[in-house]
Amino acid sequence: MCDTCGCQLHEHHHHDTKVVEVNRSLLEANQKQAESNRHHIEHMGAVAINLISSPGSGKTTLLERTIDELKASCSIGVIEGDIETERDADRIRAKGVPAVQLTTGGACHLDAPMVHGGLHVLEHFAKGRPLDLIFIENVGNLVCPATFDLGEHRRVVLLSTPEGSDKPAKYPATFKSADLMLITKVDLLPHFDFSVEEAAGQARALKPELEIITLSATTGDGFAGWLAYLRGLLAQRTAHEH
């Protein structure tokens, strides 16, 4: 059980049949809404990316620099998930893009129904302007968010150098479910006992095809790889439309 919200949907063996049935029903309802969200996002003409990490891994800072680099060439919207406050959404709005804050009131993850509501508010904030990229910044947590599809097209997990390079082994479900791992804050590598090779090796032992990019949103080191990844997603979307 998650200490934050009581979520029982992790890699545990349940002996209580009622709990299993409730969990299964909850996940099935979430998956149905996630598929609806995906169709909605595609109807908007956008690509959605679910960002997952521990607290403080640099998701918002990553988004700020991404917006600075791409806002001249594509339209971006952001859904922010936090237990409380609108601080992260305010930081994104200061960059001139629409941002919706979803406060979970204690829950340690976003779910598809929450994002469904957020998408409608985001469309309102965009004032009819089509969006190319929608970033969903999940609640800081490496456990619960792995279980819940939000309707995203790509799931990106961030691992920052101060956290240590053993996180993929400790949180296997999260890294197995990711399409891309970003090793962030690499400008701090000289100051922490972090092995890029160890982290990458553990992650690819779980998912051999996992893409990995190392970067620093502060210095810009490696950021070109992240931008190329995003531009590739947009190119795929355009090709699919035609």
Rank of each mutant, 00 (worst) to 15 (best):
I134G: 02
L133I: 14
A173E: 05
P145F: 05
E137N: 11
Y171L: 15
T174N: 09
R129G: 02
V157Y: 01
L142W: 07
V115P: 11
H120D: 15
E163T: 14
E152V: 00
P168M: 15
D149E: 06
P168K: 12
L142V: 05
D132C: 11
L159A: 09
T174H: 15
A112W: 04
E163P: 15
L119K: 05
P113Q: 05
P113T: 01
A169T: 14
K167A: 08
E137M: 05
L142Q: 09
L142Y: 03
V121F: 05
H153P: 08
K170T: 10
E163W: 13
G140A: 14
L131R: 05
G117V: 14
M114W: 15
P168S: 10
S165L: 02
H153K: 13
G117F: 11
P168D: 07
L119C: 02
L131F: 03
K176V: 11
P145K: 07
S160C: 11
L133M: 06
F135I: 03
M114I: 03
F135K: 05
V143P: 03
V156Y: 00
A178R: 10
L119E: 02
L150E: 02
P113H: 04
A126N: 12
A126F: 06
G151W: 07
R129L: 11
F175I: 08
H116R: 04
V121R: 15
V156Q: 01
A178M: 03
V156T: 05
S177M: 08
P145H: 13
V139S: 00
S160M: 13
A112D: 12
L110N: 03
L131Q: 05
G151T: 09
A178C: 00
G164R: 15
K170F: 11
R129A: 13
A169H: 09
L131C: 07
D111R: 14
S165R: 01
D166C: 03
S165M: 02
H120P: 11
V156E: 00
I136R: 02
E152W: 02
A146Q: 02
C144R: 13
E152R: 01
A173C: 15
D166V: 09
P113D: 10
A146R: 04
P168H: 08
L122I: 06
V121H: 11
L150D: 04
D149S: 09
R154E: 08
L122E: 04
S177T: 12
V157G: 02
E163N: 14
V115A: 08
G128T: 05
V143W: 02
H109K: 03
S160F: 04
H116E: 13
L131V: 01
K176Q: 15
L119M: 06
I134S: 00
L159H: 04
R129T: 07
K127A: 12
A126D: 13
N141K: 10
A178Q: 04
L159Q: 01
F135P: 00
V143T: 04
P113S: 06
T147D: 15
F148C: 12
E152Q: 10
I136K: 07
L150N: 08
F175G: 02
F175N: 02
P172S: 06
F175A: 03
F125D: 03
